[in-house]
């Protein structure tokens, strides 16, 4: 039976002058809003800012090694951001399943890769915002240095450090997104996100023969120089291989699974 015959003209014409699909930019805005419009999301953002403040505050008052430079505070303030922001990345994906909003999300945007791309981009924006927040906190600490210590404030920051810090934060938040996509469960993804790399590090560092594994596949080790902008030629290759294992692999597997899975 042909549907053309049975469909009244007005029905069909409405379909033809159909409103266009939401742009990727619009979907990214939606995802960013989702990450902050629940209590869990809001408190996580507050916790990240508070932890960054706490870290530079402790340094300012109690750290003997503090040199009053912006770069020093900037490096240190990245750790709380890098620790908590990936959780936001995980929840960006897993809350759709734990709260079952995936049904609404994918009914509105049936091309699932559009939604997943928007989530990846939104997480990237969050990482940039996290670095900016850390920079603001660091600037505050730098400005206060001459006031609370007898050191002078130093405002230099190398372009390499800024770029590598941005990159490492983006990598970590996307590892969170990838774990979320692979596991689709908030508690499971959060626990494994923190547990797996730690177990991995302990394993490869206790077994001497596995040194090369640590050098090439342990993301927490390969990215250490990035916080100070000191990654060199081989370092880039080692970051590349560890990113392939911890980010690309779960991302690709999770992505393909979500595209094929039944949403219920």
């Amino acid at each position: 039976m042909s549907s053309t015959v049975l469909t009244p003209a007005d029905d069909r014409s409405r379909f033809q002058q159909s409103p266009s699909a939401p742009s990727l930019l619009q979907l990214v805005r939606v995802e960013l809003r989702k990450s902050a419009d629940t209590r869990a999301g809001r408190w996580l953002l507050v916790a990240i800012a508070a932890a960054a403040l706490l870290v530079v505050g402790l340094q300012l008052f109690f750290d003997d090694g503090v040199d009053g430079s912006f770069a020093y505070f900037f490096t240190a303030s990245q750790f709380p951001v890098g620790l908590l922001l990936p959780v936001l990345g995980i929840l960006l994906v897993t809350s759709e399943w734990s709260q079952r909003t995936a049904m609404t999300t994918f009914a509105l945007v049936p091309r699932r890769s559009q939604v997943l791309t928007a989530k990846v981009l939104a997480a990237t924006v969050l990482a940039v915002l996290g670095v900016l927040a850390a920079a603001a906190v660091s600037a505050l600490a730098t400005a206060l240095t001459p006031v609370v210590t007898d050191l002078e404030a130093g405002w230099e920051l190398s372009g390499a450090q800024l770029a590598q810090v941005l990159l490492v934060q983006i990598v970590y938040v996307l590892v969170g997104v990838a774990f979320g996509m692979l596991l689709l469960s908030s508690p499971l993804a959060i626990v494994l996100y923190f547990l797996l790399p730690t177990v991995f590090t302990i394993l490869v560092s206790t077994v001497g023969a596995l040194d090369w594994v640590q050098n090439w596949l342990d993301l927490s080790m390969t990215t250490i120089p990035m916080y100070e902008g000191q990654l060199d030629g081989q370092g880039w290759a080692q970051v590349g291989t560890s990113v392939a294992l911890w980010l690309l692999l779960p991302l690709v597997v999770g992505w393909l699974r979500i595209q094929r899975a039944e949403i219920a």
Binding site: F15, S18, P19, S20, A21, P22, T38, R39, A40, S95, Q99, R100, T101, A102, M103, T104, A107, L108, V109, P110
Partner: peptide, 20 residues
């Protein structure tokens, strides 16, 4: 469908909404 929600209104599970 280019913008599915403008053509088809879907309610498949009233429980599938974010509690927060």
């Amino acid at each position: 469908l280019p913008n599915a929600g403008r053509h088809v209104g879907v309610l498949l599970d009233a429980g599938a909404q974010h509690a927060g």
